[in-house]
Design a protein around this nucleic acid. Structure first.
Length: 110
DNA sequence: CGGCTGACTCTAG
DNA sequence: GCTAGAGCCAGCC
């Protein structure tokens, strides 16, 4: 069978985010072997239909939720994050990158 | 082919 | 911490 499509690799990268942790769109794209394709990662998520996909663990580079504040998606994402112990303040997650990079070293990823 | 759009990112001020 | 502007990429009309 052919090698996985870009979208498949992005989805795999999203599924690899441990529970209770978060990653940025650019980070996901990079891990999928698509550096600089953050927008593609966002696009893939917008069209995903997999209920098991932890899409709520993906944030913007500055640790903010990518949805407009107050929107349905925004509330849903912050609710899911908090339910797994992630601290969400005013649409922003503390230590989005730091926490992830820390574990990245542990996993041997990079 | 041209133009618009978006769950993006980076740099400046 | 905030807003603006520019750069970027893929999909759609």
């Amino acid at each position: 069978m052919p090698e996985p499509s870009a979208a498949d690799r992005i989805l795999a990268a999203v599924r690899a985010i441990p529970r209770g942790q978060v990653a940025g769109y650019g980070e996901i794209a990079r891990r999928a072997g698509l550096p600089g394709r953050a927008r593609l990662a966002a696009r893939v998520l917008s069209g995903n239909a997999d209920p098991a996909l932890p899409w709520h663990r993906v944030l913007r580079a500055d640790g903010r939720i990518a949805f407009p504040e107050g929107s349905a998606g925004f509330r849903e994402q912050s609710r899911r994050l908090r339910s797994e112990g992630v601290e969400v303040r005013n649409g922003r997650v503390r230590r989005a990158r730091a926490a992830f990079d820390l574990d990245a070293e542990v996993w041997g990823v990079r």
